[in-house]
Lab assay of single mutants.
Amino acid sequence: MDSLVVLVLCLSCLLLLSLWRQSSGRGKLPPGPTPLPVIGNILQIGIKDISKSLTNLSKVYGPVFTLYFGLKPIVVLHGYEAVKEALIDLGEEFSGRGIFPLAERANRGFGIVFSNGKKWKEIRRFSLMTLRNFGMGKRSIEDRVQEEARCLVEELRKTKASPCDPTFILGCAPCNVICSIIFHKRFDYKDQQFLNLMEKLNENIKILSSPWIQICNNFSPIIDYFPGTHNKLLKNVAFMKSYILEKVKEHQESMDMNNPQDFIDCFLMKMEKEKHNQPSEFTIESLENTAVDLFGAGTETTSTTLRYALLLLLKHPEVTAKVQEEIERVIGRNRSPCMQDRSHMPYTDAVVHEVQRYIDLLPTSLPHAVTCDIKFRNYLIPKGTTILISLTSVLHDNKEFPNPEMFDPHHFLDEGGNFKKSKYFMPFSAGKRICVGEALAGMELFLFLTSILQNFNLKSLVDPKNLDTTPVVNGFASVPPFYQLCFIPV
């Protein structure tokens, strides 16, 4: 009986604490739906499609509103004006990374994606500088992407125009580009180590996009005490870190300090320079996690976009025909596509942009946080508050993009057929937390897609009208449904 009384008292205290925290903070924060004790607004949000729920709530509470995930307040920004004001106009104040408990377990605050403060700034600055020195957006990395595009075309030829699921092959190409940047090595598509790495990356994007992960991140005790797919994700990350550590040891034994070959060499050189400046942010643990982040951000996002792009091109054969006509006119058949071609191919450029806009790969991006107490639109948001960005509300804005739910390359073309930029184009987020590999991803999408369409016609196994382009999961990332196609050599 005594234990029951204690339990009831504990629960009562928890409920009172929950109510007090919510009521004391709500006077400062933007308005929002009334949260339930302990669980907050979790029942009012469709976990399978958070973005749709945010759109519905914005119609009631406006472009800036507050939700509670458990006891934790989260300020939501919906629509271009609110997102721009926060991420661009007040970029420094909104540059923090929001709480992501599962990532905390995986990387302990290291790396480039989930770190904060001085650690994040130094690692991000170093990573950007190193990638630029190796030619991100310049010639040397373009050579690597072109080489991988040629290998991709050869792998597709091996399908002999038979029906195939493109998931694996389209994942190999961007993964190999990242391998060449980090390890100075590309792998054969049949290499077992490479296959294991690909498998872990593919599993992780599916797990991260599941409703279960949303629950884990908002009720963090689940991570330590409950079984579930989150444990598989943590094991996959541990596998990748151990693999990278092996490569780091190989580099330490063979590195030429006067001739760095890749990202690992550059990081080890930085560690050597910083060894007298303790404590340094440049450690082996930081290198492991930064490399894992580059793999995660640079492989599955690009391969998922490529997979979605081919599905949309199957669905819209008239678009595919126009792209192939432009390829034939500008590039021809006797040389590989290059980035200089893009400025002469406005329709193809528009298609690449429209694919990214339409699929809305990361509907709410990753959570941000404010780095200080900030007054925002007459609300006071306390330091450390998590900020949720609705990228969907920007990419699918119906004023900027008429009929935003329709796939239409003319969203990025003017009346004369010239490519038209849009400030609403934010597939990689915006501001200080914009994806480090934005330029690389854009290069890969253009070169891989043009190389495929230069060499193959795409054949659907069903009537294009019957192809479903609805994402199968739409949590962290929008993942396309399973499909097969035939690559018919031109």
Rank of each mutant, 00 (worst) to 15 (best):
S3H: 13
L4G: 01
C10Q: 07
W20M: 11
G25L: 11
K28W: 08
K28V: 12
P30N: 00
P31S: 07
T34S: 12
T34R: 14
P37T: 03
I39H: 02
I42R: 07
L43K: 08
G46I: 04
G46H: 10
I47Y: 15
I50L: 11
K52T: 13
S53N: 14
S53V: 10
T55V: 14
V64M: 09
L67M: 09
Y68L: 02
K72T: 10
K72P: 01
V76G: 01
L77K: 00
L77Q: 00
H78A: 12
K84Q: 10
L87K: 04
I88F: 09
D89E: 09
D89V: 09
D89C: 10
E93I: 07
G96I: 05
G96T: 06
G98S: 15
F100L: 14
P101A: 12
A103S: 15
A103C: 15
R105A: 11
G109V: 05
E122P: 14
R124A: 04
R125M: 06
L128K: 09
M129I: 11
F134R: 12
G137N: 15
K138C: 13
D143C: 12
Q146V: 11
Q146E: 10
E148V: 01
E148S: 01
A149H: 00
R150T: 08
V153C: 06
T159P: 01
T159H: 05
K160D: 12
F168P: 05
F168C: 04
C175R: 04
R186G: 01
D188I: 02
D191R: 01
D191Y: 01
Q192W: 05
Q193L: 09
F194S: 02
L197H: 02
N204A: 07
L208S: 14
W212G: 07
I213S: 15
C216S: 15
N217P: 12
N218W: 15
P221Y: 11
H230A: 11
N231L: 08
K235R: 13
K235I: 03
K235Y: 06
V248N: 03
V248A: 07
E250K: 07
D256C: 06
N259C: 10
P260D: 07
D262A: 05
D262C: 15
I264L: 10
F267L: 04
K270V: 09
K270S: 10
M271I: 11
H276G: 13
Q278N: 14
Q278P: 13
F282M: 05
N289V: 15
D293I: 05
F295V: 08
F295G: 01
A297M: 02
G298M: 00
T302L: 07
L306V: 04
L306N: 00
L314C: 06
H316Y: 11
V319N: 05
V319M: 08
E325P: 03
E326K: 01
E328I: 13
E328D: 11
I331S: 05
C338V: 09
M339L: 11
Q340V: 12
Q340R: 15
R342Y: 04
R342I: 10
S343F: 11
P346K: 06
P346L: 03
P346Q: 07
P346F: 03
T348W: 02
T348A: 08
A350Q: 00
V352C: 13
D360H: 10
T371C: 08
C372D: 13
R377L: 04
I381F: 06
K383R: 10
T385S: 10
T386V: 09
T386H: 08
T386D: 11
L388H: 06
L388S: 03
N398S: 13
K399S: 13
E400M: 09
P404L: 04
F407T: 00
F407D: 00
F407S: 00
P409V: 07
P409S: 02
H410C: 12
H411T: 01
E415F: 05
G417V: 04
S422M: 10
S422C: 10
K423I: 07
K423H: 09
F425E: 06
M426V: 13
P427F: 03
A430E: 09
G431L: 00
R433P: 00
R433E: 02
V436H: 05
L440H: 01
L449V: 07
L458I: 13
L458V: 06
L458N: 00
K459F: 05
K459Y: 08
K459G: 08
V462E: 11
P464N: 04
K465V: 13
N466C: 12
D468T: 10
V473N: 14
N474D: 10
F476C: 06
P480A: 06
F482T: 15
F482C: 13
Y483I: 02
Y483N: 01
Y483C: 02
Y483D: 01
Q484A: 05
L485F: 01
L485R: 00
F487K: 00
